[in-house]
């Protein structure tokens, strides 16, 4: 069985500092999307279950991927395709889907394509669906339980008012929800060995696209502004023993007019 997992690397959102309402991204360490880690974990679990499987991670991003890719490789991926060409920069979600689709077509063999239900930074939820459309595959989104057997998947989807049990034949695109599994922390020796696993770096030409069909040039969404919402908090940590803290809190909330009206 061939499994492709799409993963996005991004700045650690908790460490982004805001200055003059603008996000400062420089020097913020890069991390993998939370749900994308669930996606690779699920692929690894399936492989452990079915025995024979090959997992390929596809990631579009900066050249920092070279370093970061060790983590998914150590978590169980066998191979990686890195789309780090600067021409890819500035894509919107639909553009990302296009590039991923071309890369996956080039990989050729794919019974399961697994993504996160949303990227941790954008959470647009567009890439999975658009990718499924481009690959002309059925899709099952918001998956919290997944079972693959005899060329068929059964999945439990987490919808607003119900859990939906569905089935489909392979190949299929899956997007996973956070509760599907607990991503493993790769062990050191696995990370070390990950360095030896095959990695491919493809630019636009490798996947049959020209430079102006990708990246910012081809983006179908324009960003007009991107600023932090204004926040002005008092940041008072109440001091003293517990009784004093409680008294101070209640007093403050009454003075603010939000309590005891």
């Amino acid at each position: 069985m061939d499994i492709v997992v799409c993963m996005k690397q991004m700045p650690d959102l908790q460490q982004i500092r805001i200055k003059d309402r603008k996000p400062i991204l420089e020097n913020v360490p890069l991390v993998w999307g939370d749900l994308d880690k669930n996606a690779i974990e699920e692929a690894a679990l399936i492989k452990e279950k079915v025995g024979e499987a090959k997992i390929t991670v596809v990631a579009k991003g900066s050249d920092k991927l070279q370093q970061g890719i060790l983590e998914p490789l150590a978590m169980g991926a066998d191979e990686a395709v890195l789309l780090t060409d600067p021409a890819f920069e500035g894509s919107d979600s639909m553009g990302t889907a296009k590039v991923l689709a071309k890369a996956i077509e080039k990989i050729g063999a794919y019974d399961l394509v697994i993504l996160g239900e949303g990227s941790t930074d954008n959470y647009s939820g567009l890439v999975g669906s658009a990718l499924a459309e481009l690959l002309n595959l059925p899709e099952i989104t918001y998956v919290r339980e997944l079972n693959v057997e005899n060329g068929k998947v059964t999945a439990v989807r987490n919808m607003e008012e119900s859990f939906e049990v569905v089935e489909a034949n392979l190949p299929v695109v899956i997007t996973v929800a956070q509760e599907i599994n607990e991503p493993r922390l790769p062990k050191f020796m696995a990370i070390r060995k990950a360095g030896a696993k095959p990695r491919h770096e493809w630019g636009p030409a490798d996947i049959g696209l020209s430079a102006d069909e990708v990246g910012e040039n081809a983006a179908s969404v324009d960003m007009l502004s991107n600023l932090a919402p204004e926040q002005d908090r008092k940041n008072i940590i109440l001091e003293g023993d517990l009784d004093e803290k409680i008294d101070a809190l209640v007093d403050a909330l009454i003075k603010e007019g939000v309590l005891g009206r």
């Binding site: 700045p11 959102l13 982004i16 805001i18 309402r21 603008k22 996000p23 941790t120 930074d121 954008n122 959470y123 983006a219 179908s220 969404v221 324009d222 960003m223 007009l224 502004s225 991107n226 600023l227 932090a228 919402p229």
Partner: peptide, 15 residues
């Protein structure tokens, strides 16, 4: 929201 909620982006589709 963008960057997980750190910022609010104004965006428009151009197709």
């Amino acid at each position: 929201y963008a960057y997980g909620g750190n910022t609010l982006a104004s965006v428009a589709v151009n197709t």
